[in-house]
Simulated assay, not measured.
Amino acid sequence: MNAVEINDLTKVLKGRTVLSHITLNLEQGGSYGFYGHNGSGKSMLFRAIAGLIHPTEGTVKVFGKQLGTDISFPESMGLIIENVGFWSYYTGFENLKVLASIKHIATEDDIKNVMRQVALDPEDTRTYKKYSLGMKQKLAIAQAVMEKPQLIILDEPTNALDEEAVDAVRKLIRGEQEQRGATVLIASHNKEDLKQMCDKFYKMNDGKLEEGDLQ
């Protein structure tokens, strides 16, 4: 089964076509990188796959189920698109614990383990409000993978990270795909990120999609 099947997807917002006749099939367990200039449509495509916007025309299926018809959102998804809504006066661990309580999938040990993998200390008593930009980004990545989702969608995952943290995140995301069989979609301006974490590449340009080449 394909993880993602998009058929002739078009999205028009305020009279502007932001996605134009996109057809795309992504195999389960693959890792896919998307690149293109700001406003090219990468984030909009990810929003459509995540069920956050609905097609003007065409269809989006995730693991065989059509968004907007069979399901509203992918049933097993980890997501970073723009800012993640964390609570300012909770610690990082407390934030993840509250989010994990919704589905009861991730245990406290799971949360602590994934925080350490992104170089965050689960015992750190600082609140989210006092986190640096890099720490906030690490926490966002931790929440995206802590429940071991089948589909991981990351928009600019290494923004604001230092070199050591970038290496840790690349290793974590590769492990999710190679060891667990997760399907990974990453949009980034950093082509080295895409080379390290993805096996196939697509270029977005003015809402249109084409196969890319980072060699």
Rank of each mutant, 00 (worst) to 15 (best):
N95D: 05
V84K: 05
T125S: 09
N113H: 10
D110T: 05
G92Q: 07
K103G: 07
W87N: 00
I102D: 09
I102G: 06
T91H: 04
I105M: 13
S101N: 08
N83Y: 13
D110R: 05
T107K: 13
D121P: 15
E94C: 01
A106E: 13
T125F: 03
Y90I: 00
L120N: 05
I111T: 11
N83K: 12
A100D: 10
G92Y: 01
Q117T: 10
F93L: 01
T107E: 13
L96E: 06
A106G: 09
S101L: 11
D124H: 01
V98L: 11
V118P: 07
G92I: 01
N95H: 06
F86S: 00
T91A: 03
Q117G: 13
K112H: 05
S88V: 03
L99V: 08
S101A: 14
N95A: 03
K97A: 03
Y89R: 02
K103E: 11
T91R: 03
T107H: 11
L96C: 09
N95L: 01
W87T: 05
D121N: 15
D124R: 01
V114H: 04
V98M: 09
A119I: 08
F93S: 00
V98H: 03
D109E: 15
N113T: 15
A106R: 09
W87R: 00
E108H: 08
G85Q: 15
T91C: 05
L96M: 13
G85F: 12
V84Y: 10
R116S: 10
T125L: 08
Q117N: 12
